[in-house]
Design a protein around this nucleic acid. Structure first.
Lengths: 113, 113
DNA sequence: CTTTCATTTAAGTTTTGACTTAATAAGTTC
DNA sequence: GAACTTATTAAGTCAAAACTTAAATGAAAG
């Protein structure tokens, strides 16, 4: 499932926003999102399943609860897709500055420098 | 319409990818996307409408054709949303380096420095 | 080992939105 | 202005996906 297909849902985006500040148990997430969107707790669990299976979040079992936390990989993928549009609004830095500043390609592809 | 709702469609993403390299007439875009996705030209036009109305692309009339080009605003919005997740995968630069490197908040909010 | 709490899964319904065909609009060319 | 091109809009169909209720799972507590 493409990263943007997952993010193309307001409930899932909200869940991720909540997780951005740190891990949270599923029930906690449901408590917030159910009232905000007026949907059932089961619906939230289904969205969590999508996030799980798409690799946006992972649960950790702690007694009877599942503590969810953000999984960065797919976000990075989104960021990469955005790269091809960055020149439309970001000032063009010289190539080295960009590499150093964002430090992305170097780390990811390990070009051997 | 939320930026991610717009990007949550593979045809629209493809259209934007094509526009990332530079402006193109609608017919040109349709020619490519219709074959790639096996959909009608009208369907592509409908997607272009969504992109137009959401502010992701703007057409410029040139004779009978509409030359589409990227409108950066909404992409920047997406980038901003991602900001809250960046710390999960980007090395934390010191604050000034971040400002200089990305030059975003400074330019946008013009904090007066 | 049964009850209870937290969460997920299953089954079925409803809604959203993407697609098709047909019609319309606007710009050239003759 | 008739014919042809380029593109958008309208109307209706269909499928994907989000939601609901109900049942199932699994851990802890009595």
């Amino acid at each position: 499932m493409h990263a943007f297909d997952v993010l193309g849902d307001p409930v899932r985006r909200r869940l991720l926003e909540l997780l951005a500040d740190g891990e949270r148990p599923a029930g906690d997430l449901a408590g917030i999102v159910c009232t905000e969107f007026a949907i059932s707790q089961a619906a939230v669990s289904q969205h969590l399943k999508v996030l799980r299976e798409a690799g946006f979040a992972t649960p950790r079992k702690e007694g009877p609860r599942r503590i969810y936390s953000v999984e960065p990989g797919r976000f990075e993928e989104v960021d990469d897709w955005l790269d091809r549009f960055r020149h439309f609004w970001e000032p063009r830095l010289d190539a080295l500055a960009t590499e150093v500043a964002r430090g992305k390609k170097a780390r990811r592809k390990d070009t051997g420098a």
